[in-house]
Structures are given as structure tokens and as C-alpha cells.
Design a protein around this nucleic acid. Structure first.
Lengths: 340, 340
DNA sequence: TTGAAAGCGGTACCAG
DNA sequence: CTGGTACCGCTTTCAA
């Protein structure tokens, strides 16, 4: 078994030509007589030959691989519904271009830095997909220094030489706040995510803006995006004199944890408390009451990011991509506040 | 920038030796004079040289990479809390051995097969991590045919030439059923997972055994592990005359969806209905009531599986590994049944 | 239009 | 111990 894998030489020999011609043919380069070309293709097919990306990469200085480094503390590691779909989206474009995804999950910043350095030094990947962008992300200068290519999800505040894939959440947040206000809410709180994370901060800012625009004084409790802190924040909010009648959570896992706290206190949801998430996870439609949130498109992000990165790597073309804006998804967790 | 990466030749030249010696030194092979060895090491350090795994692999016919192919239908793609931790566990062993993880997420069986074939044909990886094992998994013969190495999570029924990493859930399920029986439950249902999946079937069987041992007639509703079907199954169960007082769900996302249904019907949890999961996810402790379940150790699985696979690839040594058995985690979602 | 040969960055074998 | 050389599988001049 395991036929000692056929190489370009086998094909050349079987077709009675030099390997140069096989190479030229394979790469759809001109200068090969049509007849010869077809014979080579034919033989290659018969032999089931497919070029070895490793060997190819050695000549061309390419890895035919893209890198994704995920930093996840043990406490938030399993709560993120974004990545499976994101990676599936990445995969659709990589697969058809003979590329592959190298995934690394690290627990902390030190390990993260080492991961990027090693992957770059070993030329394991041709570029990086940058997710979970921080407001002033150190990975940008790091990757610049390493001479790597990259594409970021979101636009770093500090500026960046790399293309960004962006998606507007502002309009969605406006819609969300207006939805709550329209229902009659006046005391609306926001359990925000990690301030250092770009989307966490951005959403918090926009929430505040939208609230003020509606004549409401925004109440914000910062967290690290973990359900633990989401639950804590909820308790703190519900303990207040002027407890909010609606809470907007920075992500769905926190919203679910917040629901748990509310239920535990015997609140009737959504009458006593309206709750929303901000990133449209699947599980959100199965909790009770089902979660009002913004929609999200992880696969779209993956597809766009991988496409942009490959373009950058292969053609040197940078260029931002804007995804369709987030929209409000109204489900059952929001309603007019009961008299209280 | 991006110093045209230093190679073994640069090191050899700078150290005034041939590259053979550099190679021998690097690989800790004997036959290099201590003095020379140190000089080479010193120079390598100064130049920041690190061997190129690609080039190395070309000689040694190794990819220094392990493959993980995940099949996820769009409907269950984001609900699995297992993988982030699993991959983190894998990473801990790969990182320190200069290996890397190639991850592919595919939507269906055809794409899955293609993924394995391509990864193997292109020699992108040295072996595969097999998760989500089916009772009679076609990937086993496929990978045998491809002449690949692999390690499976769980033991395929059809037999397998590959090492398996196993974990006993039987005792935990017994414990769980006894826990419910001890609380006074007599009508206990199991919303089981995909019958074709090994752990789904195995758990269902053990549930039945344990129930019968307790003198209870087991009631089982099969699903595909998705929260949708978990919710459906719950509705069906709650509609019955002899509705169960406790439901054991095949995984935590379904349990959460089940809770949603129960809440929606105005049931008081856990008094009116006890609910349990079976795979100890983090989010389970933040729903209300917090979820009684079995513990799980995805990172332990990752570590063990990667270790076993590397042993197989590098030393040709196969050998099963047994992880510590699953234990019951009692939280707030189980209690004595109310009179009804 | 084609083939020979050098090179990508390593490893391994063989003389010396 | 050490250096020279062939080779891993593929791409790319350069002559013919």
C-alpha cells in the first residue's frame, strides 16, 4: 500500500519529456506545444500526480498556508460561538486554492507572541488572519517587524499597513437602542466587553452615543466578555435603586448568563427585564426567552479575510473589504417594561 | 526589513565548517567535536538561525504537522464547546515539538473525504486526529487505504489499526441515573444524540442499562445533537401523558435548549423538571438553574491524542491511552420531583 | 518547443 | 571528526 508517491519525474518519464515541461504545463505557462501539453496532462491524470506543495514552496518560498493564532484564557476558551463558522468560511476559499489553515490556540500574550514569531521564522505560513483585534494591537507592529503579511478583522486604531475586513455595527446598535426606547425603556444598561478589544470598545461607544441621542443617560458596566463577569455585572445592575429595565450585553454568552441571574432572582423575562445580545449566536434562539440580538456573519468574515489575504500574498494587492452592516434581530427577550 | 532569512549555509560559512556539521550538531548527533559543536551552536544563536521545517521535511518526508478535519453541518457548527479546549490541549504538545496543527472545517461527507485525501496526497500532515467518531467510521478504512497515521478519540466498533484515546463515561452515567433515582425520580427520559456517533450511541445504551438496573423503563428520544432537535424532543416529552420528571440530555447545548422549552411552558425548574447535560460545558454553570452534568476534559483529550499520534509518527509505537473516567457534577438543575 | 542544470534549505552517505 | 556530494520534489534560467 501507500504507493511510494508519484513525483514530477515519474510523470516526465512516462510522458517522455523533461520535468521542465511538466512543470510548465502544470503551471499553465505558455511555450509548451499543445500536443505535448495534453499528453503530459493525460499522463499526470493517469498516474494521479499532484505536485507536492512542500517542494513547490521550497522553490517559490511559499508555505501555501495561512495562520490563525487564537489567544484564549482558560476562562473564555469555550464560549465563543464565532470561530467554527469563521474557519469554515476561511476553508471554502483555501480549499479551492490549494492552501491550508494552520491554527494555534495559546493561553496568554507571551505564548501568542512566540507563536507568531515561530510561525513566521519557520515560514510555516504566508500570512496571518488577525481576529479579536485590540484597540492598539501589538500584533500589528510585531508582524510588520517580522515582515509578514496579514489581514485584520476590523480596523486597528493605531493605523495598520495591512488590509482590514470591516463590518458596520453602528447602525445595528442604533436600531437596537431605538427598538428598546420604542418599547418604552428609559433605563437601559450596557454590559460591555473588554475595553481593550476594538469591537468591545466600539460598541460601547456607539451604545452611549445612541442612548444620548435618545435622551437617555447611558449606564455601562465593563467586563472581560466572560459569562462569569456577565453574571456579576448583571447582579450589580439588578441591585441598584434605579435598576435598568433593559440590558444590552456585549456578546451572547454574557446575555445568557445574565438571563440566568435574572431567572434566579425570580424576574419575569422579558416583562421585568429586557435582555439583548450583540452577536447573533445560534444558541441564542434556543434559550428562553429567545434572544434579541444583532445578526452576525462569521463565515462571511472568514471568506472575505482569506480572500483578501491570499490576494495580498499572491498579487501584493492590499485593499479593505466592507461586509454588509449588522442588522437587528428581534426575538422574544425584549418587550415593553412592566410597570414595576 | 525581513532579512533574507538565514540558512544552514550562512551558519556553516560563519562557523567555518561544512553544512554537514551544522546539520549533525543541530540534530544532536554524535561525531562532532565538542568544541566545534559549541562554536556552531554559538554562531547559530548569533545569527538567529532555525532550520526550515519545509526543507527538512522534504528530505525526511515529514510535514511536521498534524491534521484535524471537522465535519460540521451549518446547523450544529457553533454549538460545540469541546473543540477550543481540545485544540489548546493539542497545541501544548505540538508547540514544544516543532509541529503544527492543520485544521479543516467541512460541511459534509463528500468534502470531508476530499479533505483527508488531499491532505494525505499532498503530504501536508503526518497523521490525523480523529474526533466525533462514528460507530462504524468510514474514515478508518479510508485512512488505512491512504496509508496515513491516525489516532481516534474513542474506539471504533468496526475495529481499527490506529491507537485510541478513551475515556469511560459509563460510571458517570450510572452515577447520574442513581443521583436522579435517589432524588425520587421514576420517569426519566434521555434525549440522546446522533445514533451513528459512537459516544452518542454508547451513552444511550448505558443510560438504558442504568435505568433498567434501577427498575426504571427507559424512555429515549433520538436527535442529531443540535439544539433545535433538543428543543423538539423536549416538547414531545412534555406533551406526554406520563411526562418525565427528569430529562438527561446527550449534550449541554441541547440541555440548555430544553430548559428554554420548559421555561417557556411555565415549568418551575428544577421542581417541575430536573434536567442534566452530559458533557460539562462552561456555559452550563451560568444558565438558570445551573446545569448538572458530567465533567469533561477536552484539553486532556487533546494532549493525550497529540502525544499518542506523535509517538506513532515518530517512533512507530501504537498504544491506546485511557483518560480518567468522567464524574458527575451536581449543580442546581436537578432536585426531587414536586408532587405534580 | 524542449532539455540540462542550478538552486530552494535541509539530511545523509561516503571518503579522507 | 570533517567535507564533499547526491538527493528530497519542484521551479526557473539558459542553450540548443
Amino acid at each position: 500500500m501507500s504507493p511510494a508517491s508519484v513525483t514530477i519525474n515519474d510523470v516526465a518519464r512516462a510522458a517522455g519529456v523533461s520535468k521542465s515541461l511538466v512543470s510548465l504545463t502544470l503551471n499553465e505557462r505558455p511555450g509548451v506545444k499543445e500536443e505535448t501539453r495534453e499528453r503530459i496532462l493525460q499522463v499526470a491524470r493517469e498516474l494521479g500526480w499532484t505536485p507536492h506543495p512542500g517542494a513547490r514552496g521550497l522553490s517559490l518560498r511559499r508555505a501555501y498556508a495561512l495562520g490563525l493564532v487564537l489567544r484564549r484564557s482558560p476562562r473564555t476558551i469555550e464560549v465563543d460561538p464565532f470561530f467554527a463558522s469563521f474557519i469554515a468560511g476561511v476553508e471554502t476559499v483555501l480549499a479551492e486554492r490549494g492552501n491550508v489553515l494552520v491554527l494555534t490556540v495559546v493561553p496568554d500574550r507571551a505564548a501568542e507572541e512566540r507563536a507568531y514569531e515561530r510561525l513566521a521564522a519557520d515560514k510555516r505560513v504566508d500570512g496571518f488572519l488577525l481576529t479579536d483585534l485590540l484597540a492598539d494591537d501589538e500584533r500589528i507592529p510585531l508582524l510588520e517587524r517580522l515582515g509578514s503579511f496579514a489581514v485584520s478583522l476590523g480596523e486597528p486604531l493605531g493605523g495598520s499597513p495591512f488590509p482590514a475586513v470591516t463590518r458596520d455595527y453602528d447602525a445595528g446598535i442604533d436600531e437596537l437602542v431605538q427598538h428598546l426606547v420604542g418599547l418604552g425603556h428609559r433605563r437601559i444598561a450596557h454590559v460591555s466587553g473588554d475595553e481593550r478589544m476594538l469591537h468591545g470598545r466600539r460598541r460601547r461607544e456607539r451604545f452611549e452615543t445612541a442612548a444620548r441621542a435618545a435622551g437617555i443617560d447611558p449606564l455601562v458596566v465593563p467586563t472581560d466578555f466572560s459569562p462569569e463577569q456577565g453574571a456579576e455585572a448583571t447582579k450589580a445592575l439588578l441591585d441598584r435603586e434605579d435598576r435598568p429595565t433593559a440590558i444590552v450585553y456585549g456578546n451572547d454568552p454574557m446575555a445568557i448568563a445574565g438571563m440566568g441571574v435574572a431567572h434566579e432572582r425570580g424576574l419575569d423575562l422579558p416583562a421585568d427585564l429586557s435582555i439583548t445580545g450583540l452577536d447573533g449566536s445560534q444558541i441564542g434562539s434556543f434559550v428562553y426567552p429567545s434572544l434579541t440580538t444583532l445578526d452576525n456573519d462569521p463565515a462571511g468574515f472568514g471568506l472575505a479575510a482569506a480572500t483578501a489575504l491570499l490576494r495580498l500574498v499572491e498579487d501584493g494587492e492590499a485593499g479593505d473589504v466592507a461586509l454588509p452592516p449588522a442588522r437587528l434581530v428581534v426575538r422574544a427577550s425584549t418587550a415593553a417594561p412592566s410597570g414595576r
